[in-house]
Design a protein around this nucleic acid. Structure first.
Lengths: 218, 218
DNA sequence: TCATACATACCAACGTGCGGTACTGAAAGG
DNA sequence: CCTTTCAGTACCGCACGTTGGTATGTATGA
């Protein structure tokens, strides 16, 4: 293939293909050869010119997935018209409402075949998203009186772990009924911490999402 | 190596070696050659006689790890001298007090290099331990009035996810301070569900455990 | 001309399959 | 009760195809 004047396009092409294959078949079962085959003429040299290893490709793919989400988190975190509790509510609503989520949901990655991806999500949740986005919001909530807790960091982790992992239908698929029960338990947990985040509008949207995912699997 | 009259010993030997190496270096970075090298004369053919694939070895190793834990869960679940809440308390206390735990803790597997192992733990927690051991206990607790919830299955999952994953120092290592905060938040969460499980004796043991793990990493 | 965007050829190491061998335990025969 | 036989199996070790990765060559644009 001819040399590309804009190498970033090649990088994006590689990432697109890698993303799709990793979602479909899992990281381990996606070989470099596999990626090359779907690249339309590009060779191994091209890949190893832009990425230093197969793992490096995975990291880039994960970066692309999480960066959108993190950007949203940052925007809400930095708003000045909401108190802490309202920001958490906004994040939760936003993360279920954004159309981007639908894309990922219909891509329907099989986490059973993707332990690396799952670990990255877990890692990003606890090591990045919780301390950098949720924690500041909870701390603000403590200041403005809308949230009460002695352990803001741990609360941030636990909430996000439940939301991003436990309630994630891509990780633990549930019937619509079970999903609904999860949301209710989640709501109850938050109320136990004095938080009021899950309202009826969100519940409706959650059921819609679960339904979409269920259908995409058939 | 000579033919073994008791092939199960050979299987155990392979499992012992595989367990150690997988803990130390991670599943991906443990090759069949690696295992053979620590087997004392046994060959590749021997391994593939007893196991159908490398993945099959991992499954067996994980089985060995979880079976001990599951046996303990079954015993407490089937006791008739405790109500639901007391059983949960017993399980929690037991899972921290057993010396077996210390072994695994000092083995100190690096889950950062072992996404497969982490996923298996997660999977076993949600798909096996929660529904088969914790759920019946919670249901008993509902009957005997010691636990109140509308969603026993989801409650079981959430509690065990927090305990086995979030609070697991092998997965998310924390300072002793942070671990203590996690326990407190965990306790608060349980209280939010009307459960009284974490008492002061348990808190002391938890701090000891965390301290052991911290030292084993140095 | 010179860095860079690729292609090509190649490598060591990997998981796995397989033909072969030597041992075991039980049945068969005396 | 002792020996012979024989099927089953524990194990060996190499060959095979594929993998992730590298070294080197080549063409293109600034």
């Amino acid at each position: 293939m001819a040399r590309n004047k804009h190498p970033e396009e090649t990088v994006n092409l590689i990432l697109d293909v890698a993303f799709r294959l990793i979602m479909e078949k899992g990281y381990e079962h996606t070989s470099i050869q596999d990626i090359i085959a779907h690249l339309g003429g590009l060779s191994k040299g091209a890949i190893y010119h832009h990425f230093k290893s197969k793992e490096d490709i995975l990291v880039a793919v994960i970066d692309r997935i999480t960066s959108e989400s993190n950007q949203m988190l940052a925007e809400i975190r930095d708003r000045s018209d909401l108190n802490g509790n309202e920001k958490l509510k906004a994040i939760f609503r936003e993360s279920i409402t954004r159309p981007v989520q639908n894309d990922i949901f219909t891509a329907a990655p099989d986490f059973h075949n993707n332990p690396k991806l799952l670990f990255s999500l877990l890692h990003d949740t606890i090591e990045n998203a919780a301390p950098n986005y949720i924690l500041p919001i909870i701390e603000q909530g403590i200041s403005d009186g809308s949230i009460q807790t002695e352990y803001p960091k741990q609360l941030a982790e636990l909430i996000l772990l439940a939301a991003n992992v436990w309630m994630n239908p891509m990780i633990f698929d549930s019937t619509e009924e079970e999903s609904y029960c999860k949301f209710m338990v989640f709501r109850q947990m938050l109320q136990g911490f004095g938080l009021d985040i899950v309202d009826d509008e969100i519940l409706v949207r959650l059921q819609e999402l679960t339904s979409i995912y269920q259908k995409s699997k058939q």
